[in-house]
Each structure stands twice: as C-alpha cells, then as structure tokens.
C-alpha cells in the first residue's frame, strides 16, 4: 500500500560521516555486489564495455569542493535513499509496489509489481531511485533488508553491505528513532543534519558535517612550503647568524 504508516516502530537508517569519508567508492561497489544478487536483483548495466556505459546503482559518491582558499576543502559525499518519514516516492506510486514498512521505516520497491512508470524517481529530491533499463523496474537502496535480519549471517555481519565495506568507519547503521541508540547519540554529538530539509520529506538518514579545521592546520596556498625558524639566542644559533651575515655581505 502506498499509504504511509502514521509512525514506524523503528527508524532504521544510516549516518554518514562527511569528515572521515575518503571517497574510495568501496561502499558503492560493495552495494552493487550485494544487491546484484539480493532483494532487488539484478542490478543491470547497459553497455558495460561500450561507448556509453551506465547502469542501476543504489549508492553514489560525489566529490565536492566547499569554500574558498584557506577555508576550502574537498568533501566526499555518498548519496543513497534516505528512507524518509514522508516519502512522496511512495504516495505517488500507482501500483503499490513502493511502500514504507511500518515496523522499521525501510522504503522498498516490490520488484514483482513495479510497472516501471518512473514517477517515483520524479518525486524523489535526492535522486535515490534508479530505473533498471533491462529489468524494466525501479531499483533503490533496500538498507540491505536481506542482510540486517538474515539469521544465516553471523550477528556482526547483519549490517548493510556499504557499512561493512567502509574502511574508515564513515558509515553507521542503527535505529534513529531510539534516542539512546549509538547512531542517535552520534548525530546529537556531531550535529548531524538532514539534506534539503525545506522539501519536507523528513529524511531518516543523517549526515555528519566535516569537523572544523584546527587553527594551526597547514593549508595549501597560505603557508609557505619552507619556513625559517625564529632564532632562540643559543651560541650555535648566534654562530649561524654570524655565518649568514658574512655570506650575505
């Protein structure tokens, strides 16, 4: 059903740390690998070795530059479904293939009933839904619903593939509806925020901002590559100063 649950028991989602993400794309490829054989399988590619290769991927990592000069920095920015509390992608679906689960808030597409009208992709501000040109239906992040409840996996592996793959620990998975959960505490501590809050979709996933740079951090372009240390007045320093004066004469 495309009617949204009034409230969900849990709000499972991701917390993504933009301070530690290094843009290695490991989450992207592990997502593709898992989901090419999982719930949403297949995740087809078009012309993978041709002139115009493209395909359905559920997780994309952009790199942006933010700020100018000494304040400027590179930020790697993973983008996937945010499992919103009020996802218009679900309510616009004419078939009921798109739905939001009442028990954990995960937004899913039923691959057996989707007609591939693509209207949900129009309704999503975050570009989270991609059309599979070969399969003829919409694909999106499942929060690895076939991993997180999978009792054939060992408990430590019951996490989304992207979270497991991240080498820097920039991705965290948990219940954002529980104020005492590790992810909720992390969001509170680091000032986690919503993307495009003005659209009113109330995303579950949160982003942690890059930490402010330390005052004495070396920044390209503003600090000379070589510096002359100040003299401390020791005999050796005075000897070198004399040599410097003689050579400069």
């Amino acid at each position: 059903m495309t009617a949204l649950p009034l409230a969900t028991e849990k709000k499972l989602g991701l917390v993504i740390d933009l301070d530690t993400c290094v843009g290695c794309q490991a989450c992207v490829t592990s997502c593709k690998e898992w989901n090419n054989g999982g719930y949403s399988a297949p995740l087809s590619d078009e012309q993978p070795y041709g002139a115009d290769p493209h395909g359905a991927w559920l997780n994309r990592v952009h790199s942006y530059e933010a700020g100018e000069g000494a304040k400027g920095r590179t930020v790697h920015f993973p983008r996937s479904c945010l499992h919103c509390e009020t996802p218009a992608c679900v309510t616009v679906c004419p078939t009921g293939a798109s739905y939001k689960r009442g028990e954990d808030g995960i937004v899913l597409v039923n691959p057996d009933t989707c007609i591939g009208c693509k209207l949900c992709s129009w309704a999503c501000p975050y570009g989270a839904r991609e059309y599979d040109y070969t399969d003829g239906i919409m694909k999106k992040c499942t929060l690895c619903v076939d991993r997180i409840y999978n009792e054939t996996l060992s408990p430590e592996d019951r996490q989304p593939a992207c979270v497991k793959a991240c080498p820097t620990g920039a991705r965290h998975f948990g219940d954002l509806g529980d104020k005492e959960s590790a992810v909720s505490k992390l969001v509170a501590m680091r000032g986690g925020y919503d993307l495009l809050p003005e659209m009113g979709y109330k995303p579950t996933n949160k982003y942690l901002p890059p930490r402010p740079r330390k005052a004495d951090a070396l920044v390209g372009g503003t600090t000379p590559a070589e510096t002359i240390p100040a003299t401390d007045g020791s005999p050796a320093e005075r000897l070198f100063a004399w040599v410097d004066r003689v050579l400069s004469a």
Binding site: L18, Y64, A66, G67, E68, K71, G72, R73, V75, F77, Y193, D194, L195, L196, P197, E198, Y207, P209, P210
Partner: peptide
C-alpha cells in the same frame, strides 16, 4: 542546502 556544506562556503 542539498549537501548541507554551506557553512564551509
């Protein structure tokens, strides 16, 4: 606003 990085610049 889309990236939330406006505070940096």
């Amino acid at each position: 606003s889309a990236t939330g990085l406006g505070s940096i610049g």
